[in-house]
Amino acid sequence: MIENIAEITKDQLLGETQKMSGQNYRFVTTSCVDLGDGNLDVLYHFDKDAKLQNLRIKAKRGEEVPSISKIYLCAVLVENEMKELFGLNVTGMAIDYGGHMLLTPEALKNPQSKITIEQRGEK
């Protein structure tokens, strides 16, 4: 249902992002989706004249994915966020918060991934 989406592998990611940058696209954000069983979908959204162009890569939790922050510096925050909340191992970020941008050291690891939530106390 998403328009302009291209499925690529993670080895193509840097090349495709470079191409986007060359075509004067603006980086919007990335979205990470947990598909269950440690499979992650990562969507990269780019915009030009209010038209979105999306890239989708598939990765496993803990798998190394290259950072695009060398091409788009503004991707730094969102890549740190993905690393913390989903456990996607993004390597080579321009600023690495070391997994503590949003979370404290004693917080649950990868809180956004598919986990079962137990009801605490009475409803």
Binding site: V28, S31, V33
Partner: peptide, 10 residues
């Protein structure tokens, strides 16, 4: 999944 990218983040 509900993903929100807010303007200040950008």
């Amino acid at each position: 999944r509900l993903r929100v990218r807010t303007p200040t983040f950008a």
